Amino acid sequence: MVNTRPRTKKTRNQSGALIASNDDLLIEILLRLPLTSVLRFKSVSKNWSSLLSRQPFTLLYKNVSISPGFYVRNMYIPFDVENQIALPICNLDIHPHPCSIRIVQSCNGLLLCCSKHGIQGERKYSVLNPTTRQIALIPSVLGGRKVHKNIRFMGLAFHQTECVDYKVVCFHRAKPDEDMFRIQIYSSETRRWKISDESFSFSAPYYESLGSGVYWNQALYWAPFSINPLYFKIDTEELQSLSFPVEVAVESLGDSPHGAMPLYFGGSRGHLHLVLKANRSETHLHLNVYEMLNDRSGWFVKYRVDLDELLNSYPEISTCFYEFQLLDVVRGEEEDETFMVIRIPGNNIIRYDVANKSGKQIYDLSSFIDGPINHAEVHRYIETIVSV
């Protein structure tokens, strides 16, 4: 005979306890919840917090690749002003020194930040997750103040599957008056710096940094472009030469006006992009978006983008073309969801959808920022629940 008696409170409690004690079953349930619920459930217990912060949950969670917006000089701007995804942190006030902080690099949901405080304004670095509101302070590099004041590059390497323990890579001059650079690597797994056997020569003024970093395919790339561009492979700790499309003349990587000057260099959804102006005309906005092959053997044209139609909606571009800036190329989950983030004269930010060839203003920065925006000041925000 089938038992048709209703379940008692005791029975329901036993069922709930059974689910809560079964990590595999619990993961299957929580994977189906929105990000805000997952973050809230972290406070249920220490076990739940640990479960939701470590693998395999962080690798399986489906919402980790959403890119709802970007930061410009620490100010958050959503990509879609009509359907904004709630951002747990729109400024960086959780940092112990929020007034002096600046974002150095964004890497798959984590931010590498820098602040000046302490003795003679010594720079302090940290890794921040805006989604979980967590921050990890990075200890000073090996070698003390003598090495610290010669730092010219700090880059962050992180990926959910290929670099799950984030790393911070430091390039510093061996001596203040030399072009030889040494490399140090910090690992979140060991919480320590180590000195790499690799070193390289790079001619740059003593006061100039090597620009911001771009992590892609287990390697860290940096700008500005040089006559002998390199990238650093994280897994093998090796420096390799980086090739460019033939349209990028060697002279254009220095101060010469010849050749096609890159407008953008960055990654999105596992793709590395380089954007060039397709012609030298000041009155036409024809761009070639190159994508690097996964084996790094070369580039191919992924998109040919004609932005001339923007001139009809935003005629100020034609009179101040030199103020046109391509800030970001964002690949969508589907091929027809790719878009560009563009700054036009007047500091208006435009989202241009590549497939339907339409643009719309998403933000007016005129009251906040005066003049051009440095590419090193633009950092994409991606939701991720990993702990730092």
Score class of each variant (00 low, 15 high):
residue 112 L to Y: 00
residue 81 V to W: 13
residue 263 L to H: 04
residue 2 V to Y: 03
residue 121 G to Y: 15
residue 248 V to T: 09
residue 57 F to R: 14
residue 79 F to I: 12
residue 207 Y to L: 15
residue 144 G to I: 10
residue 239 L to P: 10
residue 176 P to D: 08
residue 283 T to C: 14
residue 174 A to R: 04
residue 314 Y to H: 07
residue 294 N to R: 12
residue 204 A to S: 12
residue 58 T to L: 08
residue 287 L to N: 08
residue 198 E to M: 03
residue 206 Y to G: 14
residue 280 R to I: 04
residue 308 D to C: 11
residue 260 A to R: 02
residue 342 I to W: 00
residue 375 H to P: 15
residue 106 S to T: 14
residue 241 S to N: 11
residue 369 I to Y: 07
residue 65 S to V: 15
residue 362 I to T: 14
residue 364 D to M: 03
residue 269 R to L: 15
residue 12 R to K: 13
residue 103 I to K: 07
residue 344 I to K: 02
residue 169 V to Y: 00
residue 10 K to P: 03
residue 91 N to T: 04
residue 28 E to Y: 14
residue 288 N to K: 11
residue 30 L to K: 11
residue 39 L to F: 02
residue 145 R to T: 04
residue 6 P to A: 07
residue 133 R to W: 08
residue 264 Y to V: 05
residue 379 H to I: 00
residue 221 Y to S: 01
residue 382 I to G: 02
residue 386 V to S: 02
residue 117 H to N: 13
residue 44 V to S: 06
residue 70 F to H: 04
residue 189 E to I: 04
residue 6 P to W: 13
residue 243 S to E: 09
residue 62 K to H: 11
residue 230 L to T: 01
residue 336 D to H: 14
residue 147 V to N: 09
residue 142 L to V: 03
residue 268 S to H: 05
residue 325 Q to A: 01
residue 1 M to W: 09
residue 184 Q to W: 01
residue 5 R to N: 14
residue 75 M to I: 07
residue 343 R to G: 07
residue 197 D to Q: 13
residue 108 N to G: 03
residue 154 M to V: 00
residue 71 Y to G: 06
residue 96 P to F: 04
residue 22 N to T: 13
residue 343 R to S: 06
residue 349 I to A: 02
residue 297 S to W: 13
residue 297 S to Q: 11
residue 36 T to N: 05
residue 136 A to L: 05
residue 150 N to V: 05
residue 275 V to S: 06
residue 170 C to E: 03
residue 111 L to R: 01
residue 29 I to P: 11
residue 328 D to L: 15
residue 222 W to A: 01
residue 330 V to G: 13
residue 169 V to T: 03
residue 200 F to K: 03
residue 300 F to R: 15
residue 160 Q to E: 07
residue 137 L to W: 12
residue 377 E to I: 03
residue 16 G to S: 13
residue 39 L to H: 04
residue 236 T to C: 14
residue 92 L to I: 07
residue 175 K to N: 14
residue 262 P to M: 03
residue 67 S to F: 09
residue 253 L to K: 06
residue 99 C to G: 08
residue 74 N to T: 10
residue 37 S to M: 12
residue 118 G to T: 11
residue 311 L to W: 05
residue 114 C to K: 06
residue 178 E to V: 06
residue 65 S to D: 12
residue 217 N to C: 05
residue 195 I to D: 02
residue 128 L to V: 14
residue 386 V to D: 00
residue 132 T to A: 01
residue 375 H to I: 08
residue 166 Y to C: 00
residue 216 W to R: 08
residue 387 S to V: 06
residue 86 A to R: 10
residue 275 V to L: 12
residue 260 A to H: 09
residue 162 E to V: 06
residue 53 S to L: 10
residue 340 M to T: 10
residue 133 R to T: 15
residue 72 V to N: 05
residue 329 V to M: 09
residue 307 L to T: 08
residue 13 N to V: 15
residue 233 K to H: 09
residue 273 H to D: 04
residue 326 L to P: 04
residue 117 H to L: 09
residue 93 D to T: 05
residue 172 H to A: 07
residue 220 L to D: 00
residue 70 F to T: 15
residue 73 R to W: 03
residue 116 K to D: 09
residue 8 T to W: 06
residue 354 V to W: 02
residue 218 Q to C: 12
residue 4 T to C: 07
residue 68 P to H: 02
residue 92 L to M: 11
residue 105 Q to F: 01
residue 255 D to R: 15
residue 171 F to E: 00
residue 166 Y to I: 04
residue 9 K to W: 08
residue 310 L to Y: 02
residue 105 Q to Y: 01
residue 374 N to E: 11
residue 88 P to H: 15
